[in-house]
Design a protein around this nucleic acid. Structure first.
Length: 476
RNA sequence: GCAUGGGUGGCAGAGUAGCUAUGCAGCGGACUGCAAAUCCGCGGACCUGGGUGCAAAUCCCGGCCUGUGCUCCA
């Protein structure tokens, strides 16, 4: 089967053909750790997590690199405010990132390079860019000179030099300083008093924002590599700057074969941002729902679309998610996994699922198939046909679990079931007693008393459901 | 202003020419004393004006609305 992905540069879906057959290198721009991670970071990490999972599932050996920009203006500002070292700010937020990503079931990248660990390599690349005539040193730093490679402008956003010249309007004047041209961007910034800095041939300072990614991708993935990803808000200027740097330094065109960008999160129809006050950290969200419910919510739309996020959306997706998990949990507690390939229905579901994923990682289509298998599983559970239950469970484990990452691992599911069992045991006698009383009341058609007992049970956290085979109860 | 996406039922959101998307919500039914859970069924949509086609939500042109980018941003 052929995997097609949407390439921002060509603005079309292209068949994935890797530079080295059977292997794929993917570089994803990570976070600037100046504050605890928000759900936009979660959406991005989950989107690329699933992309990587699917590439692996397709038989490719994946090398996945995600970076941390652990030095920047905002990190410095916060460090100064709190009177601590800038690395303390970065480190605590990186720790937070790893913690929440683990909760969200994001498989770690193969490497997480940090800017502060590759300063010599950055200086090397800047040196090369000066030697090749693409960069120049000025009184306040080193800049990349756009006019040395004008043909590379606007490859991702479609803008031309003229457009920016005109459209920049009032913004042009405030960018000045040592630049020859307002469109040039910084490779090395000389330190102002009190700022963290590293020595360089051009004076003490620190790297500009874009150069790190060119250096890191080169280091880990080579002079040319397959996929470069990131949020759509990074297309300009960050990723276009990377194209200038990498291609001019390495003399390859293109360095990156496929550019893929995830959509933003909207709240009330607008991009989530701190200034609008419509901001959710990951911890905000997972204080309301389980982490995997959040994960489920964030893959409801294909990765390129904006995701509309609010309480209602979160509630909606968690209610379906619970249905999925309860059917799955019931399934694995009743029988071991079988072989889904023995079922025609499940083969069909697999085929639809894979077709969706191969069409630019369409998780929405994939979820529809998951929903349909859950429905199928419910039917089989209700009719006690355990061969079918065990094959459906194995399908879900493979696709909803391994590929989409929305199921907890079986030990955790079983642990949870066990925990619930033991909690049940603790109240079991009391509940049985009350249920007997209720049974008698119901037999006497004393509905008031029966409902009173049900309310009483509800207060101690027990939900009673009357099935055709008598009452079933569970803990909230 | 320029660039680049999008406008599908109450909500979310697939679908690029002919065949029920799907989920949540709603309605009806089964089951129930009621409720819950589960199952079955139903209704309801393709921004607008033209064009091409036997056939258009789907292709082409115009209009309107809207998101994002052009400054740090996942």
């Amino acid at each position: 089967m052929v995997l097609r992905l949407y390439d921002t540069r060509s603005r079309s879906k292209r068949t994935l053909k890797t530079l080295v057959p059977g292997e794929v290198g993917i570089y994803v721009c990570g976070i600037t750790p100046y504050s605890p991670s928000h759900i936009g970071h979660a959406r991005q990490a989950i989107a690329f997590d699933i992309i990587v999972r699917w590439l692996r599932k397709s038989g490719l050996i994946v090398n996945h690199i995600t970076n941390f920009t652990d030095i920047d203006d905002k990190i410095i500002r916060i460090a100064n405010e709190e009177n601590i070292n800038f690395l303390d700010v970065a480190n605590r937020n990186i720790a937070d990132y790893f913690e929440v990503m683990d909760l969200l079931n994001v498989i770690p990248a193969d490497s997480y390079p940090r800017v502060t660990e590759i300063i010599p390599e950055i200086i090397d690349m800047i040196t090369k860019l000066i030697e090749s005539g693409n960069a120049y040193s000025s009184p306040d730093g080193v800049y990349f000179e756009i006019d040395t490679a004008p043909e590379k402008y606007g490859q991702l956003t479609g803008q031309t030099l003229e457009m920016v010249r005109e459209g920049a309007g009032g913004r042009v004047s405030k960018t000045g300083t040592g630049k020859k041209n307002h469109r040039d961007f910084a490779l090395w910034k000389l330190a102002k008093p009190g700022e963290p800095h590293w020595p360089s041939p051009w004076g003490d300072g620190r790297p500009g924002w874009h150069i790190e990614c060119s250096v890191m991708s080169l280091q880990h993935l080579g002079e040319q590599f397959d996929i470069h990803g990131g949020g759509s808000d990074l297309m300009f200027p960050h990723h276009e700057a990377e194209i200038f740097q990498s291609e001019c330094c390495l003399n390859h065109d293109p360095v990156v074969q496929y550019w893929i960008h995830n959509g933003m999160i909207n709240v009330d129809g607008e991009k989530m941002s701190k200034s609008l006050g419509n901001f959710w950290t990951i911890r905000d969200a997972i204080s309301k729902v389980e982490p995997l419910e959040l994960r489920y919510c964030l893959i409801n739309a294909p990765y390129r679309q904006p995701v509309e996020f609010n309480d209602v959306m979160l509630d909606d997706s968690s209610s379906h998610y619970r249905r999925l998990l309860s059917a799955y949990g019931e399934g694995i507690s009743k029988c071991s996994k079988g072989d889904w390939r023995s079922s025609e229905f499940l083969q069909e579901a697999e085929s639809n699922f894979s077709e969706g994923m191969n069409d630019d990682f369409n998780t929405r289509v994939a979820i529809v198939e998951v929903q349909s298998v859950v429905k199928h599983l419910r039917e089989k559970l209700d009719s006690n046909s355990y061969d079918d239950v065990s094959s459906a469970v194995s399908w879900l484990s493979e696709f909803a679990g391994d590929v989409l990452g929305i199921l907890p691992s079986d030990p955790i599911v079983k642990e949870k079931i066990k925990k619930i069992e033991s909690e049940r045991m603790q109240v079991s006698n009391l509940v049985t007693d009350l249920l007997n009383q209720r049974k008698i009341a119901r037999e006497n058609k004393d509905w008031n008393k029966a409902d009173l007992i049900r309310n009483q049970l509800n207060e101690i956290g027990v939900i009673v459901e009357d099935s055709p085979n008598g009452p079933v109860w569970k803990l909230k």
